[in-house]
């Protein structure tokens, strides 16, 4: 379980996170949703210790993040972070060199699934294919938790469909997934839990099937209510 407890974050004088708390369980897809600029990416960065927080605490399976945690949790930012001059093969080799949890068989499987060639240079890939490689480099790790920042933004519809397929396949099964989005439409059938971030705090968090069953509301209905308040 990933526990985010009362974290606060300031950029200069601007308070971006004012005590954000939520949990993400293993085996569930948790969606962090909010308008752009609300601090979703900052939360992800904070979980990965890529940006300092002013107060609060983040625990991964009860422990603060340390070097070994990166074999257990991986963050896939919204843009690829491999060097552009590398080929796909070199990028995969880089991961293999450093991560014990790199699963080569799964990497090859994903490469086939996305219909990509190992010899291609990252800088020569289309936007959609770059997004897929970005995803591949995270998904091929046998980690317990995956964080994905806006995996659907700015790519064509067919790439979106392929990426959506990943969520329903064994590739995320049994893992804890946190994904951020500002556009729920594409994925509302894929997620277990929604955490709504607004104005630096979590205004509501709920299980999607529960609000459908108990309140007869769609995810968007709930978002609308929150926004109208």
């Amino acid at each position: 379980m990933i526990e985010v407890r009362e974290i606060t974050k300031r950029f200069g004088r601007k308070e971006v996170l004012k005590g954000v708390s939520f949990t993400a369980e293993k085996g569930e897809i948790t969606c962090l949703i909010g308008v752009n600029g609300v601090g979703k990416t900052t939360v992800m960065n904070a979980i990965m210790n890529l940006t300092p927080i002013q107060s609060g605490e983040i625990l991964i399976d009860g422990q603060k993040i340390n070097k070994r945690s990166y074999e257990k949790i991986m963050f896939i930012p919204d843009a690829i972070t491999m060097l552009p001059q590398m080929t796909i093969q070199q990028a995969m080799q880089f991961m293999d060199d450093f991560y014990e949890s790199w699963n080569e068989k799964r990497a090859k499987e994903l490469l086939d699934f996305f219909k990509l060639e190992e010899g291609n240079k990252i800088s020569n890939l289309s936007k959609g294919n770059t997004a897929k490689i970005n995803l591949l480099l995270g998904l091929a790790l046998d980690v317990d938790y995956l964080l994905m920042d806006e995996p659907f933004s700015g790519i064509d519809i067919f790439s979106r469909e392929q990426i959506a397929d990943v969520f329903t396949s064994h590739l995320v099964e049994d893992r804890g997934v946190i994904i951020t989005t500002h556009e729920i439409n594409d994925i509302e059938h894929l997620i277990d839990k929604v955490v709504i971030l607004n104005d630096g705090t979590v205004v509501k968090s709920f299980y999607t099937e529960e609000v459908r069953e108990k309140e007869g509301k769609s995810v968007i209905d709930v978002l609308r209510e929150v926004h109208l308040q």
């Binding site: 070994r68 843009a79 972070t81 491999m82 450093f98």
Partner: peptide
């Protein structure tokens, strides 16, 4: 500041930073 922000990769390696 390079084309792809490689520092993400370096900081997320399972090794002492």
């Amino acid at each position: 500041f390079g084309k792809n922000t490689f520092i993400y990769r370096l900081l997320m390696l399972p090794t002492e930073r």
